[in-house]
Design a protein around this nucleic acid. Structure first.
Lengths: 327, 327
DNA sequence: TTGAGCCATGCAACCGGTTGCATGTCAAAC
DNA sequence: GTTTGACATGCAACCGGTTGCATGGCTCAA
């Protein structure tokens, strides 16, 4: 047992105030049960002693700990920080603390993180989870789980629906005279990637455009960079990237080859996380990830309060943001 | 008391295995005290029942919870995510979980977060803390605290020392013929800002350069943008910004006014978080913030193990990274 | 005056583990 | 064959709160 210097417990306060331990407990959690004078006396004693309720002990006896966990594939991917911040703020507003996990896109690590967290949180929010569906359902049995950008029936989820933005982008490109377009993929296990790719595919078909899908395993600058040769070889005139980070890599690759954007080639990103940081400023699909974080936390509260409403499925709509990488 | 479905406790395992509760506990925490056969029998029973040790109960009786807290001023500032990820990884390697707090640059909120966390962690890491020194020392009395980019004597700290990078930058600019330079400040309470500003001041003096210090309250794109008029009015030919984000705003402001970089004006950032994302790619000062995160966690382990070595002070050196915004 | 009922507080069990000490067993040593 | 000691396991207290129930004092009405 590690003794913390100066840890003052409920018993010491009780003794100082001349009451039973239970009254001290009530003074802090159910003051209406006590005379105002008693409460005042206890609080005074607590103050002079410097008493602070022990969170762990309380959690043990009540079974609630006011903690949430949030797991993301990559903190450093600019898509996530706004989401993390929003979730953190929303949790903070209800006096909840949030554990953050970084799975590094690795399902095994994600699984380990969930296991570590699950014992000390009331619920978990998994963003862009790479876990097998069965695993998610198993965990959801133990604790409320809310998903972001992962679509598992029976688990409350917030989905940033890029498909209408993507559709809009494809139509926009068709109107501008493009005939053959490329889609540069993202992480293979990603719901977002699947949903974006199929939206592009469908819209391209409807608009009578030829589509080349360029595989890529991860979302990264390098992935975009190394896709450039293939999308050029395929004879396309525009690339729609899985996300802005990938699009940025594509822009860099094009510049290396002396191809100017948008005159020589057009590029469309997704998620609008880079703002007009790229050169030229990137045409992209909006996606307010902070709203997703906020919404996920409030869904979590719903789940924690009532046992019902397990199958919420929120779609956040997106739209094309035209900047200067498309012609 | 909230009853979790299917919570199996040590007592049930004990009964199933026909041993005392204490043996079950030992099978998991001190197996060497038991016969291998007994351990095996207990683990088998635990497996079939699906027993998972209760983290909270363990924390209560041992006084250790294997949790750390990390508080940053702004998760969305690109300086922090790599640090967060590194800290998270380092913690993970030792089976620690990390709470993340976002103070939003607000000392009051930071204080509240510390208060919320301190009861359920073994130690706290405060990055770029805006807390009054006294407050930090008070908290450090209760739990080990490690600071990043905040210099308080008596508290272990990791400082990214931008001063030699800044000095290098000023000399570099003097060599290129600049006579009057501007420094665009960052958050007023920030140690980094003070240290960078004074390094620039000193180096400018030594190099015989005239210096204009342009105040700014926060680190943001907008702060940089709105500083442009003043740095131009002051007659400077180059601006050294508190960080890359601010520098990016300056670049945008210059472009709005039709001033080309680096021909018409030079810009230097700090922290190297944008890579060559800006246009033109930004000359900046390196700072591997992920190393700071990693180091902070290992300092924390030191602090948790031994009561001594309270006054560690690590300086991480930096250097000028010349790209294309300087002439 | 007495009994009913309410309310403030105390009592003690409980949450789920951990751990110092006691006990019992068995083997080696005398 | 008895003593000694090492070692495996049990016992029970403890970590610091929470909470259902018991108790006792007081008020109010009959």
């Amino acid at each position: 047992m590690i003794k913390r210097r100066g840890t003052v417990t409920i018993s010491q306060v009780a003794q100082a105030a001349g009451v039973n331990r239970s009254s001290v407990s009530r003074a802090f959690t159910k003051p209406y049960m006590l005379t105002p004078e008693t409460v005042a006396r206890i609080k005074a004693a607590a103050d002079t002693l410097g008493y602070v309720p022990n969170h762990t002990a309380r959690a043990l006896s009540t079974g609630r700990n006011s903690n949430l966990a949030l797991i993301v594939p990559d903190v450093a991917n600019p898509f996530f920080p706004p989401m993390i911040r929003a979730a953190q703020d929303a949790a903070d507003a209800q006096d909840y603390c949030v554990f953050l996990g970084n799975s590094n896109e690795d399902p095994t690590k994600e699984d380990r993180l969930v296991g570590r967290f699950i014992g000390q949180v009331e619920g978990l929010i998994l963003a862009s989870s790479r876990l097998p569906e069965k695993r998610i359902l198993d965990y959801a049995e133990q604790r409320p789980i809310v998903l972001i950008n992962r679509d598992v029936a029976g688990v409350p989820r917030v989905l940033i629906d890029s498909s209408n933005g993507m559709t809009e982008a494809v139509r926009f490109l068709a109107d501008r005279g493009h005939k053959k377009i490329a889609y540069v993929s993202g992480p293979s296990g990603s719901w977002s990637n699947k949903s974006r790719r199929s939206a592009v595919r469908k819209a391209a078909q409807q608009a009578g455009l030829e589509l080349y899908v360029c595989p890529a395993q991860v979302s990264s600058f390098e992935a975009g960079l190394s896709a450039v040769d293939r999308i050029l070889d395929a004879g396309t005139t525009v690339a729609i990237a899985f996300d802005d980070v990938t699009a940025h890599g594509i822009l860099a690759g094009l510049e290396q080859r002396g191809i100017t954007v948008p005159e020589g080639f057009s590029v469309v990103g997704c998620d609008d996380v880079l703002g007009d940081l790229t050169h030229p400023p990137l045409t992209t699909i909006s996606s307010r990830s902070s709203e997703a974080g906020d919404l996920a936390v409030s869904l979590m509260y719903d789940a924690l309060r009532s046992v019902g409403l397990k199958d919420a499925r929120y779609l956040l709509q997106t739209e094309l943001v035209v900047r200067q990488t498309t012609k």
